[in-house]
Amino acid sequence: MASQSDPHGSAFSAAELEFLAEDEMVEIVPNIRMDPLNLISGDFGPFRPQIATQVPLWLAVALKKRGKCTIRLPDWMSVEKLTQVLEAERDSARDFQPLPFHYVEIARLLFDHARDDIPDIYMVRSLIEDIKDVRFHKIGTGLEIISERTYAVKLLNLSAMEVNIVRPFVAKALETFYKLDSPEMIQDAERRPDARTQAPDRGPRRPLRPR
């Protein structure tokens, strides 16, 4: 699927990813009484005042905008959890902490629409910014390892937005390396000697099909 906004950029635009992220479930506490909603994606509700229920983010935002509910902050967005994640991210140079696949988008949507439901909003916001920066830096340094012997890149726990941002670059780089390293271009005899020296330093990214 080509991006609407930029045909040469990522496979998805950021707005499209945000749209996908709106399908994630969040917990809300309605302050209205309403029958269950029977939608194609599932049944949500019933809505009773002060009884928490699970709904997709888009529905939560729509209700919130009309002042019909409060959104409960997801567990991972609490200050303690985020502090832990940030420390863990800083501690390991290679591994990424498990966060929701759409954490960037969910955080943005909640900051935009439910700021009064987030305690310590400035703290939470800056923690998420920091986590994001640390992770992006890690991705940047991690990609330096790509060389002609990389056939695939394994990125465990990477989020949708992060993957989407590096996708065009990584795809092009891998394609070029693959092309320049094709057997017609490089004879086997000269490939071997330095193949061994670089092999151990591959970290979490390793070729699926080493030659």
Partner: peptide
């Protein structure tokens, strides 16, 4: 040209993200 393309690919997606944020 090939390298410029690669560079532009990286930059345009980063810029698009910043704009969205």
């Amino acid at each position: 040209e090939e390298e410029v393309k690669l560079y532009k690919a990286a930059q345009s997606s980063a810029i698009a993200f910043k704009k969205w944020r």
